[in-house]
Computed example of a mutant assay.
Amino acid sequence: MTTNWVDNSDNSVLYTLQLPSKLESITILENFIDTIKTENSIPENVYANMLTCLNEVVINSIIHGNKQDESKLVYINLEIVDKKELQFTVTDEGEGFDYNNLPDPTAPDNLENLSGRGIFIVKHLADQCIFNMTGNQIELHFKI
């Protein structure tokens, strides 16, 4: 379900999206991001970073947060502020994780691991990355 409304009092636009916790939901997410790009003339480099980061955090929410329990949802909110910044908030219904104690994927012992790079990549591609205390919500900012 997608909702779109404009709040003219602070010149921002808010979008919401709720996805069931199944990997097929990524197609809905990608279509949502494509629509946002087109409707708001998002530059290609920002679009690529958004797409990469949101794919990563939503897949993590589906697999690790909600454990692919289709009765649980992943909530995505997007606020576009003054057509200058995109602020995404992604929340799952899981217990969260300790985002301060993740293994360093660039450490020699971890270089050949097949997973464990997602949050590292997200932190480098988003302009700002903020977790809530429990680790089941992330806020990503992208300047446009």
Rank of each mutant, 00 (worst) to 15 (best):
Asp69Ser: 09
Glu39Lys: 05
Val81Thr: 13
Ile76Arg: 04
Glu95Phe: 02
His64Lys: 13
Ile144Ser: 06
Ala126Val: 12
Gln68Asp: 10
Val90Met: 01
Thr106Trp: 02
Leu14Trp: 12
Pro43Glu: 03
Ser115Asn: 06
Thr3Ser: 15
Asp10Gln: 10
Val74Ile: 09
Phe131Arg: 13
Val6Ala: 11
Tyr15Glu: 05
His64Arg: 07
Gln137Val: 07
Thr91Ala: 06
Trp5His: 14
Met133Ile: 15
Ile28Arg: 04
Pro105Thr: 06
Met133Gly: 12
Glu30Ile: 08
Leu73Tyr: 05
Gln18Thr: 11
Phe32Lys: 10
Thr106Ile: 02
Ile62Val: 07
Ile121Thr: 13
Ala107His: 11
Ile26Asn: 02
Ile121Gly: 08
Val122Met: 08
Thr16Glu: 10
Leu125His: 14
Gly96Leu: 02
Ile119Leu: 09
Ser12Ile: 09
Leu17Pro: 00
Pro108Ile: 02
Asn49Gln: 14
Leu14His: 13
Leu125Ala: 12
Asn60Gly: 01
Val13Lys: 12
Phe120Tyr: 13
Thr3Ala: 15
Cys129Leu: 12
Cys129Asn: 14
Thr3Asn: 15
Phe97Trp: 06
Asp98Asn: 09
Ser115Gln: 04
Glu56Ser: 02
Ala107Pro: 03
Glu93Lys: 10
Phe131Leu: 10
Ala107Thr: 04
Asn110Ile: 01
Phe97Ala: 01
Asn113Tyr: 11
Ile42Pro: 00
Tyr15Asn: 10
Val6Trp: 13
Leu54Asp: 01
Asp34Arg: 12
Ile63Asn: 05
Asn31Tyr: 10
Val74Ala: 05
Thr91Val: 04
Val6His: 14
Ile63Arg: 11
Ile26Thr: 03
Ile130Glu: 15
Asn49Met: 05
Asn55Lys: 11
Pro103His: 10
Asn132Met: 14
Cys53Ile: 01
